[in-house]
Structures are given as structure tokens and as C-alpha cells.
Nucleic acid binder design. Structure first.
Lengths: 190, 190
DNA sequence: GAGAACAAACCGTCTGGTCGGTACAGAAAG
DNA sequence: CTTTCTGTACCGACCAGACGGTTTGTTCTC
């Protein structure tokens, strides 16, 4: 795996992610990905021998990026629940770390792939299950799950631009979620 | 529109919804819908002259079903926010009203269609925006939005069966959401 | 029997994937 | 130093199947 090869692969994954985000999976064709990445179709299939391999690579990159960010947020002193909340507002908090930043929109790409084919969901189900299992071990599992669900619903709404909250309200929502997350992390049962 | 025709149309919409729910949009082909509904492809296209017409009909049915249920919940004495929460737990609350019941899973079909093609989202964006606008007019817009987002995130999780809460925990979550919804509807600012 | 409701063969396009070939960088050979 | 060889990276024409939609014909209902 030379450096050149690695760059091309990144370009392809970026292109594919962009297409999903901007136009929806329906437009995610091999020709379109290759064109967007500035690579020929043959070049694409040289690196990712099938569409499924490409999709797998997308999700795997999202997975590791998110995990890295989550761990760095915890290393910064955030509790597990608060770190999760800040995952969704990372852009504004640490713009300098944008290289490893996976924003809420990218996670949508994840969910979108799931929606297209249920079999996809099965493949990463275990990883996600173990990740979310910790949220049932906090000082207030009910509130923790509400926070988690709220964040996921929020990014859903934002992505499809349906019934979105005005920026000011959104800030208040995040603030309240962070406040509650801190309470949970510090063991207060409210 | 004879009675026979109406039954066939319902069968087709049911089949299409089922396919989306169980296998994902990728498997939603005209042949598959026709086969599942026990109708020929020609029969399908007689009623819905294009795939887009079929998809439109699906979403429109979901829209009206949900609106009907929401209004009947409000007529039962639930406040606007509480009614929205109960929308997601309707099966257990009013099993006898299952005919007009639109459960969380069906709403996923909605979102799934959006995921496939962003252009789809535009078509119903206005309707949804006006529906959700009322949630910013409650006694506690921040909490109202959190409740709404939480419910949407919850059905997302349930549908993809990813990191789902055990039944007992889920009950507690719904209970707490209803409690808060009642507070909001009754004007308590917490 | 007339129109509505449906069946089934058929067609054109789109798209995932194949395949033979090219460009080029470096190693090996002379 | 020049030539030859080799493997990586990439190109683009082409193919086969899938899928949306058409057309033509048949059956059911009134």
C-alpha cells in the first residue's frame, strides 16, 4: 500500500460520502463515485473490487473516526455521556481537530446505508451494540438513553432538514443535554 | 374507483411497506412488490403508473394515517406533546385501533424513502415543517424538542435493532417522556 | 358487450463488474 | 549508462443482468 494508493482511496471514500450526503444513496453509482473522485471506473475497482467493498470501507472509516474522536473527548476530561453529547457538536468546540472530526452528518451516511439494505445493519450490529451497552450502566440509564436517542433524532432532523430547530434553540437544546450528561457522569441521580 | 380496485391498491401499498421494513429500499422493486402483493406487474402499474407514484402513495397514506391517529389522541384528552409521545406507543395503548395505527416502524419507511433520494424530502418538507412548528410554541420548547428528537431516535434504533433498550427500560423511558410531556402541556416550566 | 382490472411477454436503459491494455517507477541485467 | 523486466496504479470499452415502463391480450364485473 503505497502513499499514492492511499491518497486515491481516501479520495474515493470522500467522494462516495459526499454523494450520499448531498444526493442520497440512490445516486451512489460506481461511475458517479469515480467521476467525483477524478478517477476512472477501472481505477475505482482496482482499489475496491466491488461496490460492497466500497460501502464496507466507508462504514469502517466512519467507525474508526468516530471511536477516535470519542476517546479523545474522554481524554479531555469529559465523562462517557458528556463525551457522547459533544460528539455531535464537535465542529464548534474543536475546529482544529477537524481532520479526525466525524460530524453528525457523516453518521447519517451510516444510517442511510442501513436503510438501503437491512443486511448491512447486521454486519455492524455487534459493534454498535457493545458501544451502546455502556449507556445502560450509568447512574441514570433512562435519562442516558433519552439523551442518546435525542441526539440521534436531532441529527436525523438536521440532515433531512425537516422540522429543524432554529440555531438559538438548538444551542439551548445541546446545553441542556450537556448539563444532564454531566449530572449523570458525576453520579447525581437527578 | 371500485371496491375491488381499492383493495388491490391497499394490498400493493401494504406489500411495498413490508418490503421496505423488512429488507430495505434496495429490494423495493416493482416486480417484488407485485409478487408480494399477489398481483402481476401489469396490475401494479395499472393502479400506480410509475414507481414514483407508488412511493408517493405510500408516504401520503402514512401521512394521513398518522394525522388521523394524532388527532384522535388529542380528542381523547391528551395535550399536543403528550399525544405525540403516545403516537409512538400506540400499539400497547389502543390495540383495538390498530386499523388506523401507524407505528414507529412505518415512520421509518418514510425516512427511508428520504434517505434514498434527497429530492423526495423536498416534497413533504413543508407539511412536516408546519407540523413540527407547533412544538416550538409550547411552554418549554427546549424540552419539547428533546422529547420529539428522543422519540425519533428511539424508533430509529428500534427499527435497525441497533443498541436497543430492553423492554423494561423502554417502558421507563416512555413513562418519563410522558410525564414531561404532561408537564409541558399543562404549562409547568419544570 | 363494454369497460374496468389484471396478466405476461417484451424493450431500453442503467449499472455493477470484467478485461485487455497503458503509464510509470524502480530493480535487474548487460 | 542503457536496456530489459516487473509490479503497481490506472484507464475505458464492453458485457450481462436487473429494473422501470410499454404493449398487447385476457378475464372479470356490471
Amino acid at each position: 500500500m503505497t502513499n499514492r494508493s492511499l491518497i486515491t482511496k481516501q479520495k474515493l471514500l470522500d467522494a462516495a460520502t459526499d454523494i450520499i450526503m448531498e444526493h442520497g444513496v440512490h445516486h451512489l453509482t460506481l461511475d458517479e463515485v469515480a467521476k467525483t473522485a477524478g478517477v476512472s471506473k477501472g481505477g475505482l475497482l482496482y482499489h475496491y473490487p466491488s461496490k460492497e467493498a466500497l460501502l464496507t470501507a466507508i462504514v469502517e472509516r466512519l467507525q474508526t473516526e468516530q471511536n477516535d474522536l470519542y476517546e479523545s473527548l474522554q481524554a479531555d476530561g469529559n465523562g462517557p455521556v458528556e463525551a457522547f453529547v459533544r460528539l455531535f457538536d464537535e465542529t464548534k468546540l474543536h475546529p482544529e481537530r477537524s481532520a479526525i472530526h466525524i460530524d453528525a452528518e457523516k453518521m447519517i451516511a451510516f444510517l442511510t446505508l442501513f436503510a438501503v439494505d437491512q443486511e448491512y445493519a447486521e454486519r455492524w450490529k455487534h459493534d454498535l451494540d457493545t458501544f451502546f451497552a455502556q449507556f445502560q450502566q450509568t447512574s441514570d440509564p433512562v435519562e442516558t438513553m433519552i439523551i442518546r436517542y435525542a441526539l440521534e433524532g436531532m441529527m436525523l432532523s438536521e440532515h433531512f432538514n425537516v422540522g429543524v430547530a432554529p440555531p438559538a434553540l438548538k444551542q439551548d437544546i445541546i446545553a441542556r443535554l450537556i448539563e444532564r450528561a454531566q449530572n449523570i457522569d458525576s453520579g447525581k441521580t437527578d
